[in-house]
């Protein structure tokens, strides 16, 4: 059979030699390995005091972005909910009333928008599906809590505060945007 990867090793079932059967060299080898680790640099990060850097594409808690004017980008199209493999996202849409133009970018908006963080698997598909660049996964961590209900995040927790914008530029590189463009085009075709 052809090997699927080049990582597979051929296991030999040959009889062990006497020296091998004694296992002593192997044990000594093991012991020396562990003792070497004793002196290795420790991998532990003392968390509250020291924090670890996240990678660029780290997917943490979601954010619902506002546009530059401070209006919510989300139009409650539901694509994120559809794309969510964990079915963590629910929303209800509402029509924009007069005088709310500065609050919502378009005519339709999500009156409620909930993500169940216990269900969410942080796959980022919602982010990818969003045609309006409204939802993003950030490098913030979902804090712990004591009750289950607390983990159903509503708009109060998701929508970015106007005074505390979340920077998602790292996630909006040209490549990403291009990719999304192509997808849109192909979809429209």
């Amino acid at each position: 059979m052809q090997a699927l990867t080049n990582r597979s090793k051929v296991v030999s079932n040959k009889q062990m030699t006497f020296a091998e059967k004694m296992y002593l060299p192997a044990i000594l080898g093991g012991i020396s390995i562990t003792i070497r680790h004793l002196f290795k640099k420790k991998a532990t990060v003392s968390y509250p005091e020291v924090k670890r850097e996240f990678s660029q594409v780290y997917r943490g808690q979601h954010v619902l972005k506002r546009d530059d004017k401070g209006a919510e980008r989300c139009t409650a199209c539901g694509l994120c909910a559809v794309s969510c493999p964990a079915e963590a996202i629910t929303m209800t849409s509402a029509e924009r009333k007069k005088g709310e133009e500065n609050l919502y970018r378009e005519e339709k908006y999500a009156s409620t928008y909930e993500i169940n963080m216990l269900r969410c698997i942080f796959c980022g598909l919602c982010e990818e599906a969003c045609p309006k660049e409204a939802i993003f996964l950030t490098d913030r961590m979902v804090p712990t809590d004591f009750t289950r209900n607390e983990f159903v995040y509503g708009k109060d927790k998701l929508v970015e505060k106007t005074d505390d914008r979340v920077d998602v530029t790292k996630r909006q590189t040209k490549a990403v945007l291009d990719f999304k463009k192509i997808k849109q085009l192909s979809h429209n075709r």
Partner: peptide, 13 residues
């Protein structure tokens, strides 16, 4: 402590 050290950890501190 030893366990931690042998596993490149720090252990109780």
């Amino acid at each position: 402590k030893v366990a931690a050290f042998l596993q490149d950890r720090i252990g109780p501190n």
